[in-house]
Design a protein around this nucleic acid. Sequence first.
DNA 1: GCATAAACCAACCGACCGGTCGGTCAATAG
DNA 2: CTATTGACCGACCGGTCGGTTGGTTTATGC
Lengths: 205, 205
Amino acid sequence: MSGETKILDAAASLFSARGVDAVSIREIAEAAGISKATVFHYFDSKDTLYQAVVRRSCEGIGAYVEQLVAREDSHSLAALADYHRRDFEEMQAHADVVRLVLRELTLGHDRQARALAEDVFGGQFIHLRRLLEKSQQAGTLRSDIDTGVAAVSMVSINLFLLLVWPVLRHLPDTPFVRMDTAAESMFSLLIHGLRESNHPKEQGK
Amino acid sequence: MSGETKILDAAASLFSARGVDAVSIREIAEAAGISKATVFHYFDSKDTLYQAVVRRSCEGIGAYVEQLVAREDSHSLAALADYHRRDFEEMQAHADVVRLVLRELTLGHDRQARALAEDVFGGQFIHLRRLLEKSQQAGTLRSDIDTGVAAVSMVSINLFLLLVWPVLRHLPDTPFVRMDTAAESMFSLLIHGLRESNHPKEQGK
DNA sequence: GCATAAACCAACCGACCGGTCGGTCAATAG
DNA sequence: CTATTGACCGACCGGTCGGTTGGTTTATGC
C-alpha cells in the first residue's frame, strides 16, 4: 500500500470518527506509521488532505451506487424492497463515510452540497427515479406521485436511520431493536401508507 | 441580558455554525463583548460551556414540542398534517439548534444520544404516538402498523429535509424548489403510500 | 559506480490554543 | 467608613497546532 493511501485511510478513519478540527496531523501521521512531515510531502495543507479524503469517500459512494444500480430490471414491489435493502446494507458497511458526509452537510456549505448533488447522488437519483417510473407504468405504484419525491423518501429512510439510530434505540418503550428490521418496517410503511386503505382520500396530490 | 446568557448565545451561534473544535474561546468572548478570562469565570472549561449550550438548546426543543402537543385533540388526517407542518416550521425556525444536535449525532457518542432520547425526544415521541393511536382507533389510520415506527417516520421527514436540503435543491431535474412544499409532499406520500391502492397487497408485516 | 529524483524524517518555527493568576472595580452590607 | 463579594480583565503559562527547513535514505536509470 502506497504512502499516500495509508495517509488517506488513516485520515478518513479519524476524520469520520471525530471531525476534522478535532484531529491533528500528528495523530494522522502516527496512525499511518509515518512522520508528520511526510504528510506534508503528499498534501499541501490539512485542508487539501481533508478535501482529498472527502473526494475519495464520495468516489466510494459513487462506486457502490453504480454496483447497486446495475442489475435492477423488475418493477415489482419486491424488487423495490430489494433495492432498498441492498442500499441499506451498503450504507451500513460504509457507515464511517456516511457520517463524514452528513457532518459536512451540517455545516451548510452550499458549494460542497452542490458538488455532492451533481457528482455523487445525481446518478443514484436518476436511476432510482427511472426504476419508480417503470413501476408506475406497470401499475405497481400510484401514477399520481412525483417519482423524485418518492426516490428521496426511499433513500431518506436509510440515511436517517443510520444517523439517529443511537437515539431511537433509547426511546421510551421503543419498537426499535434491530436497525435492519427498522429499515424494513419504515420502508413497508412508505410503500403501503399510513392511511386506512378503504378510507376516503382526504387530500390528493 | 446577563453575562452568562451573552456567552451562551454567542457560543451557541458559533458552535452551530462551525462546530465546537473550530471555535476558540477567544472568538466566543469577542462575540459576547467580554474578555476571554470572563468566559472562564462563568464556565469551568470549554467542554462545560459546550455541554451547557447543548442542554439549553435542547430545553428549547422540549418547550416548543410541549406547546405543539398541548392542543391536538382531533384524529383526522388534516390534524396530523397540521402537526407535521407546525413541527416543520418550528424546526426551520431553530435550524441552528437542529444542526448542532445533528452534528452531535454524527459523532456517535452513545451516552449523549441516550440522554437526548430520554430527556428531549422521549416526550415528543410518546405524545405523537398517542396521537397516532387515537387515529387508529378512529379508523383514520391502519391499525396493523406500529405507531412508534409511524411516529419516527413522520419526524424523520422534517429532520432529513432540513439536513440535506442544499443537496436536494441541486439534484438533476429536481422536483424540490421550496422546502415547505417538499415537506408537505413527502408527508402526503407517507400518509397515502407508494403502492397503487387497488393493487393486491404483496407484503403485510 | 554514479547521478537524479522521489520518499522520508528530526528538529524547528510562529501562532494560537485552553486555561490560570493577580488584580481592579463597583455594588452591597454592616 | 470598612469588609466582602462577584463581575471582570490584561498578562501570562505550558503545550499543541499547522506548516517549514535542511538533510538523509532509498529506489531507478544509465
